[in-house]
Write a protein that binds this DNA or RNA. Sequence first.
DNA 1: AAAGTTTACAACCGCGAGAGT
DNA 2: TACTCTCGCGGTTGTAAACTT
Length: 369
Amino acid sequence: MGHGHHTCCNKQKVKRGLWSPEEDEKLIRHITAYGHGCWSAVPRLAGLQRCGKSCRLRWINYLRPDLKRGSFSPQEAALIIDLHNILGNKWAQIAKHLPGRTDNEVKNFWNSSIKKKLMAQNLSDMAAVSSDLASISNLTNSRSTFQGFCSINQNSNLIQTAQMDQIYIPAAQNNPPPPGFDQVNFNTSLLPGLPSFPISSLDSSAYDLPPAWTPSEYQQPQLIDHQQQFIKQEETSMFITGGAAPTQFSNQLPLMGAYEDTSVINGMPKLGEMTNGNDYGMCSSSALQVLEPVSASGFSGFHSGLYASDMQVPAVSHIQFIQSLMSAFNSSSSFSSSSSSSPSLSMSPLPCSGPFLLNPNQPSSWVNP
DNA sequence: AAAGTTTACAACCGCGAGAGT
DNA sequence: TACTCTCGCGGTTGTAAACTT
């Protein structure tokens, strides 16, 4: 009996490894004639020296007639990136939204292709951000209330903030920080209470969202006056921020708008504008390049594709999102720091693991009641 | 051209959930 | 309740093909 083989396989000797065309034909012939029924019975009935589990896998991942096969389209890749941003490594749930694709296929595609592209893109974005730090800082000063980071704990309390001008982002791994910078960890957890604006721009009902991000937590946009004005004013523009989707890498929230446009609409910062949202992972908008790496401690993925320029709902949702954060800021007494007595917190500002460095020469804006 | 390395993806493994007994 | 069986999932490994040196 084999070591570590599944219990269904340990009675008789079973073949392992790649399937031969003859085996495939036997399995296809059996299942098309009789269905698979109980998988553990399939190998005996089909005349295969395989375990039922292997038969099931071969059928589901390779022989099923409704499989699409072939390389992934850019649209499929963009969808995978967005869904992964929302769902994490829930490959089966992601695959449900890609007809003809299996969870195994999606997982392999992610691990072999997308992940590397996103990491490479993130590095180059960081370089761009670093080179633009001065101009960012100038604009940051004009509305520093919004420019920065926060982390939100499980109780929706804002526990950490830092202003943009306190943060240094290394352009590359071998780029040493300026003198006086110390690394700071933005160790965060997901926020259950706030509207989830990246999701809201999609059809939320189409996704298997984690409980904290279900549509019930999200208030549908209502077109009150200033929102209508906002949409009218922006017309065909689209609005994007990065990194606020829950990912396994980061759940920090960018609180800033596009740095190239400091206009404020009804007391709220204008959000980033992106014009080429069609090419997955390759968005060249300066706003995105700034927001994405700044908002991610690892990388948070890229919002593209689905955020087409004719989608105006996200703008409304973003306003609600910013409003929520602003109201949170304006009632800082309700915040707790990472050193608070909240027993549900297991986070600490140190030691650090992210790519951010804190500038101790700048006045601290860390919320610390 | 051969050897070495990387990539793509097929297949395996262990685990947990759920149903049945 | 405890046990077994089956199924499905996600992480991981194995390997043929493609690519590089």
